[in-house]
Computed example of a mutant assay.
Amino acid sequence: MSDSTDLPRFPQDVSPGPAGAATPRPGTINGAFWAFLAATVISIVSGLLVLTQRDTLADALRKSDTGLTAQQVDQATTVALVAAVVIAVIIALLYLLFAVKLRAGRNWARIVLTVLTALQVLSLLAGSGGSWIGYLSCLAAVIGVVLSFLPESSAYITAARTVRR
């Protein structure tokens, strides 16, 4: 069992100094950032793959017995696909913003990313029909959460909070 003195220590009272020097960012925070970035990219790819499901969506609309004409089915399919892609891009951009803020040492971003990842895991466990790409994105996000809560990351976030005060 290792002693807690083996862990890197970040100063608890860090001042930016004359040049505004920041607390060194540990590799765990960088790793968490890249894991969340990977989860974001994978999610965008997943969102774009929805575009390949046009025929499946149109068939589902036709079978729903809504009395839609062929032109209405085509329009509804287009609107649904565009909406899905726009929503995926907006969510990905927000996820990216949170990852950047985590990298800057913001604890609130770590909490938001943890909640979003927990919701993603719950969604997959609830059997929402996740695909392999959804599981891959979830795995990357879980790795990001774990890395963001390691002792080095917590010390960095605490030190960054002290610098901002």
Rank of each mutant, 00 (worst) to 15 (best):
G31M: 11
W34L: 08
A35Q: 07
A35C: 15
A35K: 11
A35T: 14
F36A: 12
A38D: 07
A38T: 14
A39N: 13
T40I: 08
T40C: 13
V41H: 06
V41R: 03
S43C: 09
S43L: 08
G47Q: 07
G47K: 07
G47P: 03
L48Y: 04
L48C: 03
L48H: 00
L51T: 01
L51N: 00
L51D: 01
Q53L: 13
R54H: 01
R54A: 05
D55F: 10
D55I: 02
T56I: 06
T56Y: 00
L57E: 01
L57I: 13
A58D: 06
D59W: 00
A60S: 12
A60L: 04
L61I: 05
K63L: 12
S64Y: 02
T66P: 03
Q71M: 10
Q72F: 01
D74H: 07
D74E: 13
D74C: 00
Q75I: 08
A76V: 05
T77F: 00
T78N: 09
A80I: 02
A80S: 15
V82G: 04
V85M: 00
I90P: 00
I90E: 01
I90F: 10
L96A: 15
L96Y: 12
F98M: 15
F98C: 13
A99N: 10
A99F: 07
V100N: 13
K101L: 15
G105T: 11
N107W: 06
W108R: 14
W108G: 12
W108M: 14
A109V: 05
A109Q: 06
R110Q: 12
V112C: 06
V112D: 03
T114Y: 01
V115N: 10
L116R: 02
L116T: 07
T117V: 05
A118W: 00
A118V: 13
L119T: 02
L119P: 06
Q120L: 09
V121Q: 07
S123W: 15
L124C: 02
L125R: 09
L125G: 14
L125N: 09
L125H: 10
A126M: 14
A126I: 14
G127C: 04
G127E: 11
G129P: 01
G129N: 05
G130K: 07
S131D: 03
W132C: 03
W132R: 11
W132P: 04
I133T: 07
I133M: 08
G134N: 12
G134S: 08
G134R: 02
L139N: 05
A140F: 14
V142C: 01
V142Q: 02
V142E: 05
I143L: 15
G144L: 07
V145M: 10
V145A: 12
V146R: 07
V146E: 06
S148G: 12
S148A: 12
F149Q: 09
F149C: 04
L150P: 01
L150Y: 04
E152S: 15
E152H: 14
S153D: 10
I157C: 08
I157T: 13
